[in-house]
């Protein structure tokens, strides 16, 4: 049995031979995930059913106002898009790939505090692919790390094995944001003590690395420590995405097919 498990370990870490079997098991376990999500669902269901009429009216009014604001913003965005396309044509640059979106619901979050992932209810049947970028309503969320036919796992930007190429909106400086297994803090390594970066700077994806499309907001610089004894500044970033609370995420299709 020891030999068997060591064989499994080696196979899984060095090859992708186990992939079909893994996605098969993931599909087979789907009902269990659904059951594990039951408490959340029931809570939401109960909350929805027992809301007072006044509460509903207030909520409705809020949503209407929000819808109005968003529609106005979309109008402006449409105008900006047209302008952008025209400018790009003037510059002879290639047009950005048309981005398609897919809404997915989080069904289970990682039970292991050293492994930051969530499971979503869309899989290869819906066109999800490995390495696909995921955002939530507030900012960059993560990327797909494992796909089964009706579910997949999203590696969060806060996972310690994850890093995103980003740029500072203010100066355009290119940096890397790494996860630290902390939902509310990312770190930026290897930044020289003299570089122009201040608290409150906003970071967005830079589009380098080929996984994340350019321009999705990542977070805000929350803390900078300059220690003359260290070769680099210690920089902490607070991500915009609600990594530990979001129920719905958006999958971006930024490659063809």
């Amino acid at each position: 049995m020891i030999l068997f498990s060591v064989l499994l370990l080696v196979l899984d870490t060095t090859t992708t031979a186990l992939q079909p079997f893994k996605s098969y098991l993931m599909d087979a376990a789907k009902p269990l995930y659904g059951l594990a999500d039951m408490p959340n669902r029931l809570l939401k269901f109960g909350g929805d059913r027992t809301m007072t009429k006044e509460g509903l009216v207030v909520k409705n009014a809020q949503l209407e106002a929000e819808g109005l604001v968003l529609r106005a913003k979309v109008q402006k965005l449409a105008a900006l898009t047209i302008e952008n396309v025209r400018l790009r044509e003037l510059l002879n640059a290639s047009a950005p790939i048309n981005e398609r979106l897919l809404l997915a619901e989080v069904i289970v979050v990682s039970p292991n505090p050293l492994l930051h992932y969530v499971m979503i209810d869309k899989g290869s049947e819906d066109g999800v692919y490995e390495g696909q970028p995921v955002v939530d309503a507030y900012g960059l969320f993560g990327q797909i790390m494992e796909v089964a036919s009706h579910s997949s796992r999203v590696l969060l930007i806060s996972d310690q094995r994850h890093a995103v190429p980003v740029q500072l909106d203010r100066t355009g400086a290119r940096l890397i944001a790494e996860g630290m297994n902390d939902f509310i803090e990312l770190s930026i390594p290897n930044v020289a003590l003299t570089s122009d970066i201040i608290k409150g700077d906003v970071l967005s994806t830079s589009g380098l690395g080929g996984i994340f499309p350019v321009g999705y907001p990542l977070g805000r610089v929350a803390e900078i420590t300059h220690d003359e004894g260290l070769p680099f500044s210690i920089i902490k970033v607070k991500p915009f995405a609600h990594l530990d609370r979001t129920r719905h995420v958006l999958l971006l299709f930024n490659r063809d097919g």
């Binding site: 068997f4 498990s5 060591v6 064989l7 499994l8 370990l9 196979l11 899984d12 870490t13 186990l18 893994k22 098991l25 993931m26 376990a29 269990l32 990682s110 039970p111 292991n112 492994l115 992932y117 494992e146 796992r153």
Partner: peptide
């Protein structure tokens, strides 16, 4: 499989 661990 359930906890997305390395198999084994």
């Amino acid at each position: 499989s359930l906890t997305a661990s390395v198999y084994g």
